[in-house]
Nucleic acid binder design. Structure first.
Lengths: 352, 352
DNA sequence: TTGTATGCGTTATCAC
DNA sequence: GTGATAACGCATACAA
């Protein structure tokens, strides 16, 4: 027993012998080099197919200097958005010769050492970083040193670093405006953690909509959450423990998860949604439409984001290889969509 | 520009020169070979550390014949259980020198060619197959040919193939028994797709509990689902379109997703849960406790399953390397737990 | 167009 | 214990 599988693996040498050509020719055929006699190519291809030969990826990598592996640096997959993003990633990858090396990391601490190791091994030829948080700065350094990199979402990334995301300000603006148009005047906002740019941007959009409607954002209606369900519960408890006339008539949560927390508490306290309080989320996680009531929320095209990001990354790899590295800055902003469902409606005092 | 990063990568050769030893010695130090002079080892380690040298993974792989990559073959990550499993996988991996190559595949068709390609590239030194479905048979073949393989859940796998899963029969039995003890006599079952072994096993457990209670399973109360939310909706519509006295007083769904569908329809038709109908699911997906009402369900330790599976796989790789491949069959059955929440209660006719 | 020879960075097999 | 040197399987510059 020598490797994983018992029967000795075929090498390019074997195919060369079997087809009566040299290793070089087989290699050329495998790499679609144009300069090879059609009849020879045919013969080689036949033997390759006949014996089911597949070139050893490790050797290819060593000889060519670049692997067909793409690193994906991501938060734990249990974050609701990540599987959706990965679905898009997988979809694009499936039609490509690349595979995914998944670096699932908890980004709480600064794993810059981990990152160094990953990249120094020269195991992946490019990196897709999903919400890299504090690791961003290290990545951007490496990017400027030549690392093919695409970032998804949120960061205050240097303009040159290719990234895909959404327009958080406008999306939040649209959501808030929707509530205003329903007649709401007291709209609370549960904000995400401040070290996320998107938290600040969504808050901006919220404020802008309010101010446009002649409403000064009320600090008492701004709650600080952490994007987790529990934080939504805490914020809801804070709000609903106040005298009834101090309640908002609507709550705009910076993500769906915190909105779930609000719904939990509302249920427990007998606060009816949307009759007593309207609720709007952000993200449109998979289950948000199955909640009771179904959650009105801003849909993020996560799957598309993953898809486009990988597409971008692979294009970069190709163009890098053909030496025509372009210098323009790439920032894909994908459109979001407000999904109006049952958790929102006119304020109670406008109900007939 | 020659690679990803501009400055030329250090090689083992460079370190050897800098430390005044030969490549071989550096290699020995890197691989923790005992036979090397402590003072030399010290010197080599210092230069390695000083220059931040990290051996090239590709070259190591080619020379040694085995990579530090583990393949994970999995259904789309949007299946609710998968991220949970992957969390356990990632947790174990993080403490190991291995990395994960994620093969996210839709298992609808028989991608045995994909599998062949994956394995022939000899890029991964072991494979964790999560719910491989129809691909199983190919995998077991490869296993017997020497592929280090661990399977998670469900399959009718040959006894020799190491796998981790749960006891579906007993878990379903427990859930059904719980409903019986509440006083239910007409308990419907929404079954999963029949080509999943777990669907059949859960049905078995359901039947056994019923029969033990002297109840013959009623074919009219057996609905065929597909594990998707929509199928749960269809089944619920079927049930609730019957005359009220033909309704079940409880529904045991073979997974949580289908239970969500039931809740959707119940909400729409004004059927109260649990007052009119009790509902019990299976899986305990992350959001099941946040539904209204929170779903009573059988908790599967998905994260543990992923953790244990990788642990098993890495142990196999180690023992394979030291030629002591054991021949006993390994089947880890992890315990499940019935989580009783608000979606279940006594039948309406027993309510005070 | 095709074959030969060398290199990729490491491990493993020898002698010493 | 240590250092040359031959694999590992493929890509590629160079020669033919």
């Amino acid at each position: 027993m020598q490797g994983s599988n018992t029967q000795r693996k075929l090498t390019i040498q074997d195919i060369a012998r079997l087809a009566g050509v040299s290793k070089a020719t087989v290699s050329r055929v495998l790499n679609h080099r144009p300069s090879v006699n059609p009849s020879l190519r045919e013969r080689v291809l036949r033997t390759i197919h006949e014996y089911g030969f597949i070139p050893n990826a490790t050797a290819t990598g060593l000889a060519s200097g670049h692997t067909r592996l793409l690193g994906v640096l991501a938060p734990p997959l249990t974050w609701p958005a990540i599987p959706e993003i990965m679905r898009g990633v997988a979809e694009y990858i499936e039609g490509s010769p690349y595979e995914i090396v998944l670096y699932s990391i908890s980004f709480e601490r600064n794993h810059s050492d981990v990152l160094d190791r990953i990249l120094s091994m020269s195991m992946v030829s490019g990196l897709l970083a999903i919400l890299p948080g504090g690791l961003g700065r290290y990545l951007y350094q490496r990017f400027h040193l030549g690392l093919p990199l695409v970032v998804i979402d949120d960061q205050k990334v240097p303009a040159q670093v290719p990234r895909v995301g959404i327009d958080n300000v406008n999306s939040a603006y649209t959501a808030t405006r929707y509530l205003l148009e329903l007649g709401h005047r007291r709209i609370a906002h549960i904000q995400g953690p401040l070290h996320y740019l998107c938290s600040q941007e969504r808050y901006q959009g919220y404020c802008r909509a309010l101010e446009e409607a002649g409403i000064t954002p009320d600090p008492n209606l701004l709650l600080q959450g952490s994007f987790e369900v529990e934080s939504g519960q805490r914020c809801a408890e804070t709000l609903f423990s106040r005298p009834r006339n101090a309640w908002p008539t609507a709550i705009f949560s910076a993500n769906d998860q915190m909105a779930y927390g609000v719904m939990d508490v509302a249920e427990r306290l007998g606060v009816r949604i949307p009759e007593d309080v309207s609720l709007v989320g952000f993200d449109d996680n998979m289950l948000s439409s199955h909640l009771r009531p179904p959650l009105t929320t801003v849909h993020q095209p996560f799957s598309d984001m993953g898809f486009k990001a990988v597409e971008l990354l692979l294009n970069m790899l190709d163009s890098q290889h053909s030496k025509q590295q372009e210098e323009c800055s790439i920032h894909l902003q994908l459109p979001t969509q407000l999904c109006i469902r049952k958790s929102s409606g006119p304020p109670y005092y406008l109900l007939s």
